[in-house]
Amino acid sequence: MTTIITVTSGKGGVGKTTTSASIASGLALRGFKTAVIDFDVGLRNLDLIMGCERRVVYDFVNVIQGDANLHQVLIKDKHCDNLFVLPASQTRDKDALTEEGVEKVLKELEHQGFDYIVCDSPAGIEHGAVMALTFADEAIVVTNPEVSSVRDSDRILGIIQSKSRRAIEGREPVKEHLLVTRYSPKRAHEGEMLTYTDIQELLRIPLLGVIPESEAVLQASNQGIPAIHQKATPVADAYQDAIGRFLGEEHPLRFVEYEKPGLIKRLFGGK
């Protein structure tokens, strides 16, 4: 059984691609055969985050249009043996994604025995984003602790509930997960940011995890190594916890409480 996970948000710049890369890597690290597809045709980023941009020969649109076969397009990840990247086309636009074409590629991945297919959605609610969520079994809605991001997530949840295949065919609805990213416990504590409970109260879907704001993410992106590989950083630990919860494990929430720095910490520095 292949499970299709769509990582989406409505708003741009909230961490969809970072999350797609880390969730896909985390699932692969746990032994699942995983593919991660960049649906952001025209603004390809996933290959950079995954550090495989120099190995892209063919892309998603090439398979859809039959110019290349899946085997030629899938790029094997550097860090995990059972993770494959399907890059987006940089030179086309999103209309090149047809529903039949996307379905064909997903079916083919299913035949090849993939356990998970992670779809990295583009921002917005237009064609590309709708294509990324049409075939979803589960959706990870990435939200930043600010009102515009929460509202856009709300909007995209409405679209999942009306435009996904599961909704249209009246099957069991897409399973929705909330992932709060770029969270700063200090700023939430001081009232500068929404707290994760505020967000959850409004969106009313189960919380998959809270990823703290961290410089490690930018560093990881620039190096082309998914953040989950940055060992012993809060970001990597938070993503590991989120993957555990996704697979049904129970983990207490970490990195959400603000502790006032004590005297010693203030004297001797440290973050």
Binding site: R151, D152, D154, R155, G158, Q161, S162
Partner: peptide, 8 residues
């Protein structure tokens, strides 16, 4: 009986 979301 389901939440009405932004845009609905």
């Amino acid at each position: 009986d389901k939440p009405l979301r932004s845009g609905q």
